[in-house]
Design a protein around this nucleic acid. Structure first.
Lengths: 325, 325
DNA sequence: TTGTATGCGTTATCAC
DNA sequence: GTGATAACGCATACAA
């Protein structure tokens, strides 16, 4: 492996000049530049990126923490991140956590060890108290609706959107509303349950524990919901699900059991991903991809210290009425 | 930022000893070890990963090249990669190419620049001739069914599987078969078209250009297929699609137009992802996740030079009969 | 416009 | 067991 030192020797210049040529600095004479390029070709030289990283301030690596990549919500976020990353010449390092705090901590340690220029949490299990201790090592961005105003965050207002969904169902004549959540112990779920309880109280409906479906994430979880629904003595007339895949599972399984949608059961979901378009699912659209691209833009700006960046960034959600409510 | 030099000074030992403690080397006295740990705590020291990378042989970074992450096929591969990566203590660096050769070349340059320990191509546009010139810089693994036996590759036998699908449809009484492909100019599509033509000749059916649907990838592309199908004067009785999302789009749109599946149109797809289970789509199952995990395992073994690794690895596919054929 | 010298923070070799 | 010191390969301040 040739080094700039060898290039310098062959090209009859100093290593500094080689470095300048390599980095397109001004103030290098045509001749020397040519000589260097000549030597580079001759030795089939390539720069050692590790060494460059060490000598430089930045690594141009950004850590992306997420529980699982093969869930459409997360892969769409990453899509947004990736599109922006290519523009800003940053590389994305995927850190799959499975919601294990140890793994999430590892990501933060990569930041602390200067290997990452920043960290983006698409979702997390680790406490903000702990995350906070890493803020001094570089930008950390949360893709969640946090109320901790010392963190950078990008999100839609989740409880507002959730309440909005419930109100919409109510406005369509539903009182017996069920909800399906991802992880009841998750960041957002507590708030959602709270919104739900408030709404139900308001319309004087009792809270039925078995109308709150937990651990709902995939299409197959949607199938399970219907199977549980069938066993219910008292059945809800509407359900609000946290993502389109889940809703799709509900709808497909419902069809197999002659449950009419929306007559017997109205379904409203979140995300507005492709599947909701194709299946005409009413949904609350979230700019998922944009959350990703905005996160990376913010990270970049913070790193460069260009402009002051707003801590909390709220993106809009939008009800999309289709055929399942 | 404290360095091991400062730690050494405070702990009254040499940098070498600090390094030994940090790396759990044997032959360090209890007292010195304790002193070092003490100093580390005192200065809130953290190792500089960039420096470690430079001094070490490996970076523990693996580049993953794919056109787009938010397609279920690719995110499932990455899921397999990620699960294995955590076991092997490797980090995945996502390189989204959008099938642009320039971007793919960039990934290879990261390998050449010693920043990546290896590269995995989930799919590619760049020529193998060019990729070949980078083999000297580290392990490169192709997740495709290549016949170039100097490359490491992991895949199912694609044309065999494709022919098998056509034969299955034929065995179910279909002669008028259509196919839907991803990119006709892609790596696999040419082979598939070839298999298709061979099959059609064999059963003495003419090749109809408008029975070969191109640029088919997403559910919405499936919707388009049905719209084109409706305009067809002569209609196929079966279609073989390259992934489940596509098939799902076809089936959902077909339902809206009173096309009975499988009576009017049989649908067979590839992948066996969740959606095919929920929608009872007949499909040819591919161990996508396993392709990912196997790729990373292979990469690791090659890097370590532990055992000789087989160049071409063929994984099995499996027909899963459900309700759409 | 160019070169020298030093820093970046570790790891590893070798001598003691 | 321990410590000097030389890599690792590049960027850059400063001097010329």
């Amino acid at each position: 492996m040739a080094t700039i030192r060898e290039i310098a020797k062959i090209a009859q210049v100093s290593v500094a000049t080689v470095s300048r040529v390599l980095n397109d600095h001004p103030y290098v004479s045509k001749e020397k530049k040519r000589a260097v390029h000549q030597a580079i070709k001759e030795l089939n030289y390539s720069r050692n990126l590790k060494a460059i990283q060490l000598a430089n301030k930045h690594s141009n690596l950004v850590g992306v923490v997420l529980p699982k990549i093969d869930l459409p919500y997360f892969s769409e976020i990453v899509e947004g991140l990736a599109e922006e990353a290519r523009k800003l010449h940053l590389q994305l390092v995927l850190i799959q956590s499975n919601y294990e705090t140890e793994k999430e901590r590892e990501a933060l340690e990569l930041l602390r060890g200067h290997l990452m220029d920043g960290i983006i949490f698409c979702s997390r299990a680790i406490s903000l108290t702990e995350v906070r201790t890493y803020q001094e090592y570089g930008p950390i961005i949360l893709l969640e609706d946090t109320d901790q105003d010392d963190f950078y965050s990008i999100s839609i207002p989740h409880d507002q959107a959730f309440s909005y969904g419930l109100e919409y169902l109510h406005s369509k004549g539903h009182k017996k509303m069920a909800i399906a959540l991802n992880r009841t112990d998750g960041i957002n779920s507590q708030k959602r349950i709270h919104s739900y309880k408030k709404m139900m109280e308001q319309i004087k409906e009792p809270i039925r524990k078995n109308w709150i479906f937990d651990h709902c994430l995939s299409m197959e979880d949607g199938v399970s919901i219907v199977q549980k629904y069938l066993l219910l003595k008292e059945k809800p007339t509407a359900i609000l699900t946290t993502n389109d895949q889940l809703a799709a599972g509900v709808i497909l399984e419902a069809a197999k059991h002659q449950i009419n949608i929306p007559q017997d059961l109205a379904v409203l979901s979140f995300d507005n991903q492709d599947i909701s378009k194709v299946m005409d699912i009413s949904t609350i659209g979230i700019p998922i991809k944009e959350m990703g691209s905005e996160a990376l833009k913010a990270l970049y700006k913070i790193r460069e210290g260009l402009q002051p960046v707003k801590k909390k960034r709220e993106l809009p959600f939008k009800l999309i009425e289709r055929l399942t409510v």
